[in-house]
């Protein structure tokens, strides 16, 4: 029988978008229903294959941890990422590109 577990998080410290992103990565492995119950997000996980409850819990917690890190990284690096993209493809890039040879390797 497929494993079914519940994992809950404090809504004050855990973002919903990270929980959703982690749930997305489980598509095909487990289904995940996320509800808000008072001050907590409750994630009900049901394995699709033979994954055991504890493995599923560990996997989901790792995915949530990674998604939290990705959100944190995005906050810190988005401005610099946009700057690099504008240097590569924005008006500054257009100016220097027009001086480059049209030849492509």
């Amino acid at each position: 029988m497929a494993a079914g577990i519940t994992v809950d998080f404090d809504a004050a410290t855990q973002s919903l978008s990270a929980l959703n992103a982690a749930a997305y990565r489980l598509v095909g492995t487990a289904s995940c229903q996320i509800d808000k119950d008072g001050t907590r997000y409750v994630c009900r996980l049901t394995a699709i294959g033979q994954l055991e409850s504890e493995s599923l819990r560990t996997r989901y917690l790792e995915l949530v941890t990674d998604e939290n890190v990705r959100e944190e990284l995005r906050k810190k690096t988005d401005p610099i990422r946009n700057l690099i993209l504008s240097l590569a493809f924005g008006s500054l890039a257009a100016k220097s590109a027009s001086q480059e040879s049209e030849d492509m390797p």
Binding site: I80, L83, I84, L85, L87, A88, F89, A93, A97, E102, M104
Partner: peptide, 25 residues
Amino acid sequence: THEGQHAQLQLLALRLRSRMAFLRQ
């Protein structure tokens, strides 16, 4: 990188533009 260091950003931008240059063909 270090705050205010432009060369590294320029280098990444240049490499990114090179990698995507197939769009010019």
